[in-house]
Computed example of a mutant assay.
Amino acid sequence: MPATVHVRELTADDLTDAWDLGRLAFGSDPQRAPHATVEVPGLTRYGAFDDTGRLVGKAVDLHHDQWWSGRRVPAADVAGVAVAPEARGRGVARAMLGALLRGARERGAAISALYPTVAAPYRACGWEAAGVLRAVDLTTAALPRHRPAPHLTVRAGTPADLPAVAALYERVTRHRNGPLTRRGELFDFFAAGGGLPGDALTLVEDGGDLVGYASWERGRGYGADSVLTVQEALATTADAARELVGVLGSWASVAPTLRLYPLDGDAVGVHLPLEAAREHKRDLWMHRPVDVARAVGTRGWPAHARGSVDFALTDELADWNTGTWRLSVADGVGELTRIGGEADLRLHVRGFALLYAGAARARSVTEAGLAHAAGADPDGLDLLGVGGPAQLLDYF
């Protein structure tokens, strides 16, 4: 392959080649998804071309927003990164990701997340492992069965209920860190069909108000290997959570295994026998800032957090982040401003990602070589991670 690579946004004429490259890279179904070769709002597709004009790499910037302590933070979540086998190891992915970050910054993105097939190339570009999306299996018969609450109504949901479901999802997730808002052009595009997200939807209502829901897929058969997959089960009251758990437990005679994606510390999880859960699947996700000042200024911060810390940041791929900064947090608002001179605390962008996502403390980041204290106390950098660990609920 020639030494040079040219990166640009893909056009409609490039999408068939991009689909073929992705199919080969990921072993996808030869049958194309309907959206694969059409323009989709809310995402930007990038391609890398060699000197002959052949497409040798592709990557997608998903225009998501993430919830961070009550505020929406614009994100450039990355998916579909693939490089032709003949072009691997030649800097193609790095060139694409650099272009993606520049484009994402220009459109206003602040942060980025991705699910890697292999972490090392993304670490080399500034992303760092920050969490895991887990699917666990429970013995359905082990779920507690509660007497139905007389003030609650349980019924099957329909597509007409989806706006109320979206509102409850937002109520549960908006004060956390990391979950997608599930708003915007991209989600509107895929929701245009108007169908349910799985095989069925179970709703719990209190006086006509939605207080809990579970979306699920029935699976096949009713023998010992039958699995009921719960894509999401969320509730806003303990009574609603118990009601949902009771409904799910009622499947024990025909679906001995319940598979679900737990949300740490939520209303439903505290009623599940998670000590007996068996891990079915785990998908590592990685995080990094697109624009550090925007990442700090657009997110929410815990009201009790207050303080400031100076640090020097190094970001080899997104050099606009490199420099000496002062982080100030007070009254639920954070600000990152450039300052002159040097700083005793030095931070690599991967260390910034770990701290921002609440995935590590400053001393651990220092021990990992992603921060350097130069004799100073590194604990001041923990201000960057107040508010608890981030968590994703969507795979992309």
Rank of each mutant, 00 (worst) to 15 (best):
A303G: 10
Q391W: 12
A164E: 12
P121E: 05
A164W: 00
A156E: 15
A371V: 10
L392A: 12
A25H: 12
G380F: 12
D377H: 10
A99Q: 14
L24W: 11
R259S: 10
P85K: 02
P150T: 12
A82Q: 10
L347C: 09
A360E: 15
R363I: 11
D65T: 12
S28M: 14
V118E: 15
T4S: 15
F396W: 11
T4M: 13
L354S: 08
M286G: 04
A373I: 09
G307M: 09
R306M: 03
G323Y: 01
F352C: 09
T257V: 13
T153K: 06
Q231Y: 07
L284I: 13
A120H: 09
N177V: 15
T324F: 00
M1E: 12
L327H: 02
L317C: 05
G334L: 01
Q231S: 14
G47S: 06
T324P: 02
D50K: 00
A295S: 11
Y261T: 15
G358A: 11
D65Q: 13
E367Q: 14
V40T: 13
R105H: 11
R88F: 03
A110F: 02
A113Y: 15
Y46W: 15
A353Y: 14
L203D: 09
G198Y: 00
S215M: 07
L274W: 09
V56D: 10
R72I: 06
L114C: 05
P85Q: 06
G178Q: 05
P121I: 10
P197V: 01
R123E: 13
A318P: 05
V81T: 08
E205W: 04
A214W: 01
D199N: 05
A149N: 14
H63D: 14
A166H: 09
G42S: 07
L21R: 08
L62R: 10
W285G: 07
V268I: 11
G265H: 08
L180W: 06
P256S: 01
D239N: 10
S28T: 14
A200T: 10
V83M: 04
A192P: 08
P144R: 08
R183I: 05
L162S: 03
D199E: 08
Y122G: 09
D206T: 08
A252Q: 11
D291N: 03
A214Q: 05
E170L: 00
A240C: 06
V83Q: 03
F352W: 15
A303L: 13
R105L: 00
D266N: 13
G341D: 08
Y356F: 15
D65H: 14
E128G: 05
A142K: 13
H6G: 12
G340S: 07
F190Y: 13
G126E: 08
V365P: 07
R306A: 14
A362Y: 10
G219S: 01
G157S: 03
V73H: 04
A276C: 05
V73N: 06
G70A: 03
D319R: 15
R326M: 01
S226P: 07
L62D: 00
A343S: 15
A166R: 02
P34D: 14
A120K: 07
A87L: 02
M286H: 05
G249R: 04
G208L: 02
L234F: 07
G194C: 02
D188G: 10
T173F: 13
G195I: 06
D199P: 00
L244I: 08
T366Q: 14
R145N: 10
